[in-house]
Structure formats: C-alpha cells, structure tokens
Amino acid sequence: MGSNHGFSRLALVASDTDRAQEAAAELAGVHDWVPMAQADAVVVLGGDGFMLHTLHAMLDAGAILPAYGLNLGTVGFLMNRYRSGSRILDKVNRSRSIAIAPLRMEAVTQTGVRHVACAINEVSLLRETRQTAKIEVSVDERIRIKELVCDGVLVATPAGSTAYNLSANGPILPLDSQLLALTPISPFRPRRWRGAILPDRSTIRLRVNEPDKRPVSAVADQKEFRDIAEVSLEIAGDSELTLLFDPGHALDERIVAEQFLA
C-alpha cells in the first residue's frame, strides 16, 4: 500500500512515561482524536515495547488498526521520529504501510493442557532449571535436528529479529522478507549449528525431550507457559498487522546499518 491513505479518524495512545505523556498533552490540541473503536488508524506514543503492547491489545480485542508510531522511548526501531508541532493527520496519510504477520503458537504442557497465543516478535523455549534443555526440531513435519542440547531455542519474525533474536546472534530479517529466524540459545550440541532462515510458510514443531528431568517453558513475546511438552508454530495470516512509516524513515537502511554495528 502506498501513501495518501485517506484516514480521517485517528485514535491516540501513549505509554505512561513522562516523555510520552508530555507529547500526548501537546498533540491533544492539534487533532480531534476519537476512541479506538471509531478510528481508522492509531497513533502510538512510546517505544518499541509499548508498540508491541498496543498491537497485542488490538489482537486480543479482534479490532486491528494500522499503527503509526512516534518514538518517545529508547530504541524505536518500529517507530517514526517525533517532531513537535507536526501536522499529524497529514503525516499519517502520507505514510507507507508494511504488513507484519504474527506467529501463532500452540503449546501443549506435560499434563496435556493446550495453550494458544500469538507472538509479534518471537516465541522462545527456555530451560527452567540448571539442566540444559534437549529439544527435537522439526520443520514441515520432517525432523531436522533429533536433539538440540541448549539453553533454549527461539523462532523470530522479521519484526522481532532485531530484539531477542539479535542478542542470541540470530540474523536480522527485513520486515518484508517473508522469512523466519530459527535461532539456538547457547547451543551445546550440535556445536556448529547457528540456526536457520526459513520461509514464513513453514510449520515448525519443537518437542521437548526428557521433559520431567529437563523442564522447559515457552514464551510468546511476554506470555509464558511452563512445563511444556511440545510447541507448534506457524504464521497467523488471518491476524496481519499494519505498521505505518514516514516516507523518509529509511527503515531498510536501518536494517542494513544494524548489521555493521560493532
């Protein structure tokens, strides 16, 4: 989708930080804001963490709006630069859209309880005790690694590839790449396996070996489930989200530059 969206009704949400609240107070008088239920798009004031919180809230409510972020946090990888006094409606309407699809996780506990959750950034499996985890890795119903001995493993979307995935030495993925990163966390065996880049149409299954002795939790963004036996993952194409970026945002350049930081 290009520019000139034709939005007229905007909602405004802000994190509870002083900077975001000050910006919200400044913007309160420059536009006739409406509640989320009546809006065409939402303006999000804060950092990446608050943007993810807002996107999850819309997913949970089943009312997904295009989201235009203004960075008043720390990182702001998913946000636009905040400039005071700007004509916010014009900026939102001139923005370009990037669609992102979250991961849908179905996790089964050792007692057979099933949990379903969506992750915009990543799903991670993490050992619960001092014992290393042993995880069988399957992609598209084919076992690729019979036993990954590790602290954990994660599957990241492009939106999440610069977050936990990057700190675990996983690859950075452009937002429009239609790829997933499968990244081990402190792998012990196979020693040389550094992970994989997969098409986002892939179905991934992570099964915990020796779960009684080596318990593992599953975390979908910030939502945790403990004592997991197996996790299945696939893109939730029916829950696509839209992020709005200024034309001069140079998001692609930021993705490239991030890979050369010392």
Results as ranks from 00 to 15, higher is better:
residue 2 G to R: 10
residue 2 G to I: 12
residue 2 G to M: 13
residue 4 N to L: 14
residue 4 N to F: 11
residue 7 F to K: 04
residue 11 A to F: 06
residue 16 D to G: 04
residue 20 A to P: 10
residue 21 Q to P: 07
residue 22 E to L: 15
residue 28 A to M: 11
residue 33 W to H: 01
residue 34 V to D: 03
residue 37 A to M: 08
residue 40 D to A: 05
residue 43 V to P: 12
residue 46 G to Q: 09
residue 49 G to R: 05
residue 55 L to E: 07
residue 60 D to C: 05
residue 61 A to L: 02
residue 62 G to H: 02
residue 62 G to N: 08
residue 68 Y to M: 09
residue 69 G to R: 00
residue 70 L to V: 07
residue 71 N to D: 10
residue 74 T to K: 10
residue 76 G to N: 07
residue 76 G to R: 03
residue 77 F to D: 09
residue 78 L to E: 08
residue 79 M to Q: 14
residue 80 N to H: 02
residue 84 S to Q: 13
residue 85 G to F: 04
residue 90 D to S: 14
residue 91 K to H: 13
residue 92 V to Q: 13
residue 102 P to I: 05
residue 103 L to T: 03
residue 104 R to L: 14
residue 111 T to F: 03
residue 112 G to A: 09
residue 115 H to R: 09
residue 116 V to R: 12
residue 117 A to E: 15
residue 120 I to Q: 08
residue 121 N to A: 06
residue 121 N to T: 05
residue 126 L to K: 07
residue 127 R to I: 05
residue 129 T to P: 00
residue 133 A to G: 05
residue 135 I to N: 10
residue 138 S to E: 13
residue 143 I to K: 11
residue 145 I to W: 06
residue 147 E to C: 13
residue 149 V to K: 04
residue 153 V to K: 01
residue 153 V to I: 15
residue 155 V to D: 05
residue 160 G to Q: 04
residue 163 A to W: 01
residue 165 N to P: 13
residue 174 P to Q: 09
residue 177 S to V: 10
residue 179 L to G: 01
residue 181 A to D: 02
residue 182 L to N: 02
residue 183 T to R: 02
residue 183 T to E: 04
residue 184 P to I: 06
residue 185 I to P: 11
residue 189 R to H: 10
residue 193 W to V: 05
residue 195 G to M: 05
residue 197 I to H: 00
residue 200 D to Y: 00
residue 201 R to D: 15
residue 207 R to V: 04
residue 209 N to M: 12
residue 213 K to A: 15
residue 216 V to P: 11
residue 217 S to Q: 11
residue 226 R to N: 11
residue 232 S to T: 15
residue 233 L to K: 01
residue 234 E to M: 11
residue 241 L to P: 11
residue 245 F to S: 11
residue 251 L to P: 09
residue 253 E to Y: 12
